[in-house]
Design a protein around this nucleic acid. Sequence first.
DNA 1: AATGAATGAGGTTTCATTCAT
DNA 2: TATGAATGAAACCTCATTCAT
Lengths: 226, 226, 226, 226
Amino acid sequence: MPDSATTPVSFANRAITEPWTTKEPPVTRRGERTRQALVQAARTVFERDGFINSRLSDITTEARCSSGSFYTYFESKEEVLVAVLESMQDDMMHPGIGRLPEGDESIRAVIEASNRAYIEAYRRNARLMMLLEQVATLDPMFAALRLERAQTFAERNSVKIKSLQEAGLADTSLDPRTTSWALSSMISRLAYLGLVLGEPFDWDELVGTITTLWLNALRVPEDRRG
Amino acid sequence: MPDSATTPVSFANRAITEPWTTKEPPVTRRGERTRQALVQAARTVFERDGFINSRLSDITTEARCSSGSFYTYFESKEEVLVAVLESMQDDMMHPGIGRLPEGDESIRAVIEASNRAYIEAYRRNARLMMLLEQVATLDPMFAALRLERAQTFAERNSVKIKSLQEAGLADTSLDPRTTSWALSSMISRLAYLGLVLGEPFDWDELVGTITTLWLNALRVPEDRRG
Amino acid sequence: MPDSATTPVSFANRAITEPWTTKEPPVTRRGERTRQALVQAARTVFERDGFINSRLSDITTEARCSSGSFYTYFESKEEVLVAVLESMQDDMMHPGIGRLPEGDESIRAVIEASNRAYIEAYRRNARLMMLLEQVATLDPMFAALRLERAQTFAERNSVKIKSLQEAGLADTSLDPRTTSWALSSMISRLAYLGLVLGEPFDWDELVGTITTLWLNALRVPEDRRG
Amino acid sequence: MPDSATTPVSFANRAITEPWTTKEPPVTRRGERTRQALVQAARTVFERDGFINSRLSDITTEARCSSGSFYTYFESKEEVLVAVLESMQDDMMHPGIGRLPEGDESIRAVIEASNRAYIEAYRRNARLMMLLEQVATLDPMFAALRLERAQTFAERNSVKIKSLQEAGLADTSLDPRTTSWALSSMISRLAYLGLVLGEPFDWDELVGTITTLWLNALRVPEDRRG
DNA sequence: AATGAATGAGGTTTCATTCAT
DNA sequence: TATGAATGAAACCTCATTCAT
């Protein structure tokens, strides 16, 4: 339910690809290969050194191409970062098999699976998430991107909370939007603390506790939790 | 109860002042004045431009002193940032009057006041908190500082949660440490989203909802909330 | 026989080019030209201003290129100095025609020609030799280089002295190594005093006297001197 | 006989003290103590770090006085170096007891003792001699000083050589001045190579060989050497 | 005579971006 | 499409010297 890694995210389709990409996409196969190599190299370098501490020359060296070629495909360092973050979205959009419970699973199981999937996706992309946090403080464009991402999930969760309330399964005195933001925030910050800053957590236990806290917070009736 | 702004914080006294300051403190009044001017100027510049995008020359210009004077008191931009963050701690350590409820106030009132105080302190220092997030992704020293800060509050809250459990006022199936981290994370992320990234929140409503969520999450009995 | 300018010198081939050059050599002709211009400009500037008092900007101005280009080819001022000193070795390795006597020339003639060639080579490179003395007192790397250079010549002369002794042409009570160092020192210091510090010498007379002193010192029999 | 350490040197009395010292000497005892502390500290620092790599602040710290006090006694870094070099002259002017042979000692013994005394004095002041070489390449004033020093010794030796020639004890075909410069150069360079650059020499053997070389070079008759 | 804070010109170095080939 | 050399604006930092106290 948080920042869910299970569905496409808006900015990958609209906010990024449209207004920020000005270079023509490659037309030849060779060009496509070079562009891909640059994106992959950029991811490697960014994950290793961060955005600020990386140099374009590191990326082109890693991609085994010249610095001039970089500008055939990207306008700037920022733009290749956008492409790298898009590729992260691609990953988060295709969770591993069996991540989501099927059929008439209990509420608890659904929430827990969602939380677990989020943590797993975050783990795979922890360095890039750190990157996103880093550049969000540097460039309003990325701040907007960061916020947009959070908004997407908050809104989605907001709808789900409202459904639960209407089904008599959640505390109706809670404002759905605020509650959604609060619960999403909880897990995204925990992922950041644990997977980026390195606070040691027992992740199985953590997911269980978070799930309980959500159910408690929403006051899902004991006998309907699953 | 979160990152509480109501009590002294460890790193302000121990971690920062001792190991990170290598320059001799000024001995004359004039020197003290100049150093203070530099710290104040650095805060102004950092809040305006961020850490990465600020130049030492901006700071010295703002402080109306020469670039050489900067190095009389600080080894580097990092070191003056430490001093600025210390001054932030000083502020967070001295909350305004009446922030904390007195005597036999209800549990809800205590938690709500604590959350409100946190948000208020965060608001006053929002740009510096952003700074801390920014440098935490750049420099392990600041990452450690960031984490240490979070740990302090998580541990303090952990103790309080345990007390509530022992008094039969909280769900004993919850692990106190994990729960503490989760609830602290919720509010600190919300403060970041709202006060740094600019998501528009109704803060009064937000504090109320957060407080309800905490009470719900901990399962504080309805009739004991106040 | 002293610091002989007539044969290749070890450090030009081994010690310098290998371990001290970290930048990739240029691959295009244009790059080669720029690198050469920088080395030539550095020599001009170093000879004019010395190593300490020269600025990188002087060198790039002289080479008509940007400061950034300097760092395309060299890591530091030290490194371009190494390249300049290499070029000096190149010069000292290719003495002018007729510097060395041929065939069954007399001992005196051989030694005198060798000394004369040394002085001439020193004269052509006097400012660079001063540079080497200067940096030898500043940087252990160059001190080692200076010493290595002296060792090379001392060892070569040592062998020659031993030959003379074995042929009954030199005082066998003299230790060849010490004697070699002493005689090499004599001429190198004289060259320094005259050509660097500016003591006025009659160089023809000087070479003659030095040669006599060597023959006397070694006790080469009167009737075998030539 | 070389750069002899056994007699006062001109520049200490004339060249340095007169034209280069512009500050008034201290009048109080306290002032005298401070000035002495600064000279001593400068020597320590210069010997440790060289002239170029030393900072005035190191000197004043070492002397336990303020940077301002330095300028009470010296005009510049150069000037305190002059004072330090003067103190070296003082040392070289007062060799240890028994360094020089007395009475009707043999020629060999006199020359050997002189050479030994030179090496010993050089050893005591090796770092300062390096300093002198260093600054001689940087500042014409010190180059002149360096040369003047060498001239003094060369001239003194020149006179002695002439005496030996007139007494029929030395090769009259040798030009006294040139010969004097050559022999002085030999030992001063050897001292530099061994004591500054670190070439390992057996000093007892070295002094013996040098002495033999001098006697040979001058062609002092075998039966008159002692 | 002593202090120590203040000065600021002057140097080195980086690296995103451009451009001639 | 690819290359890699060239660019040059910044930005940091040092330390001899001055000066107010």
